[in-house]
């Protein structure tokens, strides 16, 4: 039933020859070095005792770059099929909403009607 859906290729491995893999391995080593350097930068910046907003910004920026390197090169997202990228784009959209939820709780949330202050006359009744 499902034969018509299959191709004769063996996934995306079909396009990899030994020279291609050697090139990949060189990239993996470069990414490893970059991740080590970025880890040192993360720790070094934390020793500077910056203000909390600045420290959070720098730490998350460096972590995002590191995470991007892992996702793009070790997880091969840089050459992944569009379907996977579409799934991840949808996930990323929901992830951003999820992380934004705590900020919406400040000042009781903008969608919650603020209670009218009680009139002083009423307060004495």
């Amino acid at each position: 039933m499902s034969d018509h859906l299959a191709t004769t290729d063996h996934d995306d491995h079909a396009g990899h020859d030994p020279a291609d893999i050697d090139r990949h391995v060189r990239v993996y080593i470069m990414v490893f070095v970059a991740l080590m350097v970025l880890t040192v930068i993360t720790v070094a910046v934390s020793r500077l005792h910056l203000s909390v907003p600045a420290a959070v910004s720098v730490a998350l920026l460096v972590a995002t770059v590191k995470g991007g390197l892992v996702a793009c090169y070790f997880m091969h997202l840089i050459s992944e099929k569009k379907l996977i990228l579409a799934v991840l784009a949808l996930t990323a959209a929901f992830f951003v909403v999820l992380l934004a939820l705590p900020s919406l709780t400040h000042s009781n949330g903008f969608w919650i009607p603020q209670a009218e202050p009680a009139h002083s006359d009423d307060a004495h009744k």
């Binding site: 859906l5 299959a6 191709t7 063996h10 996934d11 099929k81 996977i84």
Partner: peptide
Amino acid sequence: EVRRDTGL
């Protein structure tokens, strides 16, 4: 094998 509809 790769599914033709998903490419994966």
